[in-house]
Design a binder for these strands. Structure first.
Lengths: 334, 334
DNA sequence: GTGAAAGCGCTAACAG
DNA sequence: CTGTTAGCGCTTTCAC
């Protein structure tokens, strides 16, 4: 990693503009309180020299970094098989970019990584952190708390009831689930099942709760545990069909799960939606639109979630939990 | 963004350990040439104080940042609908982590963003850059060249013939395509078609070249342009079926395209592989394993590509182009 | 409004 | 081997 050509310093700019370093600095940082002609001269010098501020020097004195960390704590490959993560990232990136902040990505896949991330955050490299995919037993939150870095969580953390001052952005998982199940019931379905997500994540728990809100009396036979993956959806659907052959509707915890379920239904000769209606969650376009039949699902605006997280962090918002609404998107599967 | 509690400085550590700042610094940076008892004392002081080096101060003098930028220049949503990007990112992240480097993610989606990225790289915030998804007419390479930052490209840049000193990592797209097409021919197929990728990317061009290597005489009717998306695959497959109804094999430029093609084939009542054999490219598990039938495809080790890119960058390698081998993965579709 | 001067926390010669 | 010294490039009082 060789070093690049020496870049001009503020000193050089000041010299060229015939002003002091202090004045040059003022201009570079907005130019408030500097008379117009000087501003002009400094601007020109900056231009001519191709001056770019040295961020390290600046951070050293301001103690700000204009950078935030995005921590994705996901041991499994799941994150990478599903566009969810990428979409949120994009929302975050847009918002940060708009505020001239950089995005430092911290991917973790194990206990060792946690320590590393904790150290990094504690190291004061960034002005804040955006944290995702927490599982109920995740040690990361504590590390982060200790690091004392302003943090916004993506998805309600399991240990937060939404009132403890923890800032997070979440979808209305429970409400969305309710709407989906109500839709199924409204279709006249009487044996509505639910394939859950990974129950160590609050989104899965909340969706299950939403299901139960509507179908409090649903027998345990009708609830089977999945894990947010297509394979999990297949497995769960098989089990469901075995223990309850007359099931006539399935609310799957996400689109990937629903896709797996659809495959098994087809394989077993059940028609969708005629024999069994299916609803997913997420409205992950590349999945939901491409299944056969296209998937009715609960839409959440994932990119907006990312954007909002970044916004809350940058604003230093003290609001506890923000819950974004969901909407039911009707396609052919239910 | 409120500031966190003041962190201890090297000065504090030195004082507590009863040594000079210089010695403390030496210990913190590996401890070479410092006598054991002192090392021990400094270590303890670091521990007790919870000292973490101030990276800004360090960078200011070393001119190193232990950070590299990952630039993803992809205007379209495509990157986000396909796990390719995420997988490479993971490979990169692993390698960087192993070398204590941070990953700064720069997502761009337009000309404005290019300027911003150029400025950032020129600003000397990072020690190097990893650049992806270049299109043939992309202005980014020039900006990056001018920024004078060591760079490794993901995928062969269009303006490079592999000898110009540009460092890149690529899959053997051409060889992989050849193997796929040969397999199809070996199956006894006589009207083998190709649905290309977005031809403004070298990977698409190279795969097309590989196809032609084997089937130099394939009529233009048998080559139809796609864009690496399922929708493009569908459109292309329809066109193919219209202008050449007796096609009996399709080599699609990637798995997503193949998935689209499969859907159209099913819709038109063609059996796969009996009537039409289909091969994809990438071996993107969540796609290739979940299609119906499961997809025969050309596998490339995407994560390894990412890892290798990072390795080359960190090592300051001067090697021009590195091309990773591909392997044909046989499933049910061909 | 503008400049001079004092560091921010750290590393790297250079002496000792 | 260890300490002293001199900045890295910038912002920010504080005088003028």
């Amino acid at each position: 990693m060789t070093e690049t050509a020496p870049r001009p310093t503020l000193e050089a700019v000041a010299a060229r503009a015939g002003v002091s370093r202090a004045t040059a600095s003022r201009v570079v940082n907005g130019g408030d309180g500097v008379r117009e002609p000087l501003v002009e001269r400094v601007r020109r010098a900056v231009e001519e020299l191709g001056y770019v501020p040295n961020q390290a020097a600046r951070s050293l004195v301001t103690r700000r970094h204009d950078a935030i960390a995005v921590v994705v704590a996901e041991p499994e490959t799941r994150v990478f098989a599903d566009p969810f993560f990428a979409l949120q990232l994009r929302g975050i990136s847009k918002e940060l970019t708009a505020h001239d902040n950089q995005l430092v990505l911290l991917l973790t896949e194990g206990r060792d990584d946690h320590a590393r991330v904790g150290r990094y955050l504690a190291g004061g490299h960034v002005d804040g952190a955006l944290v995702f995919s927490l599982h109920l037993d995740d040690p990361l939150p504590e590390l982060i708390q200790r690091a004392g870095v302003p943090t916004v969580f993506g998805g309600r953390p399991g240990w937060s009831d939404g009132t403890s001052g923890v800032v997070y952005v979440d979808s209305d998982n429970r409400g969305g689930a309710r709407e989906a199940v109500r839709h199924l019931v409204g279709l006249g379905r009487t044996r509505v099942a639910h394939i859950t997500g990974a129950l160590d994540q609050t989104s899965a728990v909340d969706r299950l709760d939403g299901f139960r809100d509507v179908l409090a009396d649903a027998g345990p036979r009708l609830v089977v545990e999945g894990d947010f993956t297509p394979a999990g959806g297949e497995r769960a659907m098989r089990e469901l069909l075995d223990r309850c052959p007359d099931v006539d509707a399935v609310f799957a915890a996400n689109d990937l799960t629903a896709a797996g379920a659809l495959r098994v239904l087809r394989e077993r000769g059940r028609r969708v939606p005629d024999d069994v209606a299916v609803i997913g969650f997420d409205d992950m376009l590349p999945v939901a639109e491409q299944t056969d039949p296209p998937l009715t699902t609960v839409r959440q605006d994932i990119e907006e979630m990312g954007r909002l997280m970044a916004r809350l962090l940058l604003r230093g918002s003290a609001s506890a939990g923000v819950v974004l609404p969901t909407t039911l998107v009707r396609r052919a599967s239910a």
